[in-house]
Simulated assay, not measured.
Amino acid sequence: MNLQIQHIAKKFHNGTKALADVDFSVSQGEFVSVIGPSGAGKTTLFRILNGMMECTGGQVLLDDKRFDSLKGRKKRELQKSIATIYQDFCLVENSTCLKNVLTAGLPDMGFFQGVFGLYGKTRKEEALKLLDRVGLLEKAEEPIKNLSGGQKQRVAIARALMRHPAILLADEPVASLDPVTGRQILELLKSIHETDGVTILMNSHNLEFSQEFSDRLIGLKDGKVVFDGKTADLTDSITTQIYNKNDTQIENKRGVAYE
C-alpha cells in the first residue's frame, strides 16, 4: 500500500501552525523515520495519518484513495490497513497480555461479542502466535502491570500485528526505554519489516537509531520538510539545519536522543 501525504497543513484553534505544506510519499515496504526536534510537528503528522486528527489543508491518500476526508464505516475500513504503536504503549494495565492483543479485533466484532469479550478460538490462537513471535508466549496470562517497559512494547507490537496492517506507524517506540532495550525493540520491528513487507513509518528523536534502522529519513523543522533522502545522505550540515545544533554538539550527541 502506497501512502501519499500531499501538502498537509494543520492549524489549531489557538492559531498555532503545527504543519505547513508537508509533502512526501512512502512506497510499500519502506522503513522511513521522521526526525526533528520537539515541536517540529512529528506527532501531529502521525495523528493525522492514523485518523485521530484532521488536517486543515492538503490530503492523505492510501493507494490513491483519499483517507483524511472519509467518515464513518468507509474511514474505519481504510483504517484497518494502518496500525500504531506508541511511546507510552497504550495498554490496559490490569488486563493480561493476551487480552490486550485481542482488543485489536474489537472493530471487527459485533456489540455483544465485544462487550463480553467473545473473541473466539481463531482470534485467540492468532494472538498467542503473535505473543510467541515477540517472545512473550509464557507471559500470555500475565497482567500488563507486571511487565517491564520493553515487554509492554512487545505486547503493543503484537496487538498492532493482529490488525494485519500494511502500514505500521511507530510513534517514538523506544523513547521511554533504555538504549539496550530500545535497540532490541527496533531489531524486532526491522525483522517484521523484512519478513512481512510491512511499511514502517517511525517518529523518532534518536538520530543514531533512525540512521541505523531506516532506509530513508524525513527531517521536519517548524512543521515543514527540510530533508527527504537516504540515511547516507544526511550530513552534519543538514543535521545542523534540522536541529539548530552546532557541529561540535552534533558530534558529541551521536546516539543520544535529541530533545
Rank of each mutant, 00 (worst) to 15 (best):
L161P: 01
F67G: 02
T16P: 05
T181L: 09
T16Q: 13
T195V: 08
L45T: 00
L102I: 13
R154L: 09
D236R: 06
R133I: 12
S38I: 11
T43S: 12
G135A: 11
M1E: 00
I48R: 02
R183W: 04
D228K: 07
P37E: 03
H193P: 07
A156R: 05
A18R: 03
S81Q: 15
I144Q: 04
Q87V: 06
E77L: 14
T248W: 14
Q6G: 03
Q87S: 07
N244R: 07
K99M: 07
I5V: 12
V256W: 10
S27D: 15
V22R: 05
V92P: 01
R133K: 14
A9D: 14
Q6C: 07
T231P: 06
D88E: 15
F89V: 10
N206T: 03
Q151F: 11
A170S: 01
F89Y: 15
Q241G: 03
D178F: 07
T199M: 07
H7P: 11
D63L: 07
H164C: 13
S191P: 00
G41D: 12
K224L: 00
M52F: 15
L136C: 04
S27K: 08
L137N: 08
F31H: 03
V22T: 07
K75M: 13
I48D: 00
M109Y: 11
M162T: 08
V256P: 09
Y86P: 00
G149I: 09
F209D: 05
D64Y: 10
R73Q: 12
A40E: 02
D132N: 14
K139H: 15
L189K: 00
F46E: 00
V101A: 05
V226L: 07
D68R: 01
G105K: 02
P165T: 03
Q241N: 10
D21R: 02
E208L: 04
V92N: 02
N246S: 06
N50Q: 08
H193Y: 08
D88H: 15
S69H: 11
N252I: 13
N100Y: 04
